[in-house]
Simulated scan of single mutants.
Amino acid sequence: MTGRFLAIFAGILFAVGDIFTATSLAAEPVHLKVGIRGGIGEQMWEVAAKVGKTYGLEIEPVVFAGTLSPNEALNSGELQADAFQHIPFFRDQVRQRGYKLAVVGNTYLSPLAFYSKKYKTLHDLPSGAKVGVPDDPSNESRALIVLRDEGLITLRDGFDAYNETATLADIKDNPRKLQIVEAKSVVLARSYQDLDAAAVISSFGSQVGLNAARDGIAQERENNNPNVNIIAVREQDRNAPWVPLLVKSFQSEEVRKYIETDLKGIIVPAF
């Protein structure tokens, strides 16, 4: 009887030990590396990371500089998520490079604006003015749409900004004979003053002290804008239990308040 009792008691101890181990593992935070751009991206995700702790997440923002792509690192499994791009850019990257990635949530709208040290509005640009636009397809399209909306150029008939991107080849009329110069966004942000005007996205403009609402001479519309920034994960992680918690960490009142107070005029919440 004694031997049988000891065996049962030992079994109970092992079972209790297993319960404590499982509870301990469940209580450990889930470590997530999220690829972002520097500047405002770092600040927002610092706030989101604090919120994430309440959901059992340990969010580690990983900053990518220059032309390095968080999407490449995400696709290869070096990151669990990234949050630096808008939907058209994401769509082009997936189509061109075959990434197996999925959109899981919206973050904010980062309005593209034109800046100039020489002119106060785009309408002041003289004939033959040199105008810089980003050289990646999605942001170049955004810049061309602003030029169209401001009446400086027209685009081909039937162009649909929600489903396609515009290139220089899509310019139908350019009555002022603008010299449109393509360049990297990081280059335009740091040297826009060398051109008559240049289009700069907020993620790069903020790094050199530019504020679209304060310094821009024209910016894209906020309403019905297809260029909302998003959170992306690998397709295989789309239904992982930490995904909705990561999205909730960013789409929180704390992050919204930070955007609306500290980043007013630079970006707009999209949640």
Rank of each mutant, 00 (worst) to 15 (best):
F5V: 08
I8F: 13
F9Q: 03
G11K: 04
F14C: 10
I19L: 07
I19Y: 14
F20I: 12
F20D: 07
T21Y: 15
A22K: 06
A22P: 04
T23D: 12
L25C: 00
E28K: 04
H31V: 15
R37S: 08
G39N: 15
I40M: 11
G41V: 08
E42L: 09
E46H: 14
T54V: 15
Y55K: 02
G56W: 03
L57M: 01
E58R: 00
E60L: 07
E60G: 01
P61Y: 07
F64L: 02
F64I: 08
T67G: 04
S69Y: 01
P70W: 06
E72K: 07
N75E: 04
N75F: 02
N75V: 06
Q80F: 07
Q80I: 07
D82Y: 15
A83T: 11
F84P: 01
H86Q: 11
I87E: 07
I87K: 11
I87N: 03
V94A: 05
V94Q: 03
R97D: 11
Y99E: 01
L101H: 00
L101I: 04
V104I: 15
T107R: 12
Y108P: 00
L109V: 14
L109S: 07
S110H: 09
S110I: 09
P111E: 11
F114L: 02
S116P: 00
S116T: 04
K117M: 14
K117P: 05
Y119K: 09
K120W: 05
K120H: 13
T121N: 10
T121C: 01
L125A: 04
P126K: 11
P126Y: 00
A129Y: 00
V131W: 02
V131T: 01
P134W: 12
D136R: 07
S141E: 06
S141L: 05
I145D: 14
I145F: 15
V146F: 08
L147D: 03
L147F: 08
R148Y: 09
E150H: 11
E150S: 09
L152D: 01
I153C: 04
T154A: 02
T154M: 01
R156P: 04
F159L: 12
A161M: 15
E164S: 15
D173L: 14
N174W: 06
R176P: 03
R176C: 13
K177E: 13
Q179G: 10
E182I: 11
A183T: 12
K184A: 11
S185C: 01
V187I: 13
A189M: 09
A189E: 05
R190S: 10
R190C: 00
Q193D: 15
A197K: 03
S202T: 14
F204E: 08
G205V: 10
G205Q: 02
S206R: 08
Q207P: 06
V208H: 08
V208D: 01
G209A: 09
R214D: 12
D215V: 05
D215G: 08
G216P: 09
I217L: 11
N224K: 12
N227Q: 08
N227E: 09
I230V: 14
I231K: 00
R234A: 02
R234D: 06
R238T: 14
V243K: 00
V243H: 03
P244A: 09
L245S: 10
L245K: 15
K248F: 15
S249E: 11
S252A: 12
E253I: 12
I259P: 03
I259S: 02
K264R: 13
V268Y: 14
V268N: 03
P269H: 02
P269V: 06
F271W: 14
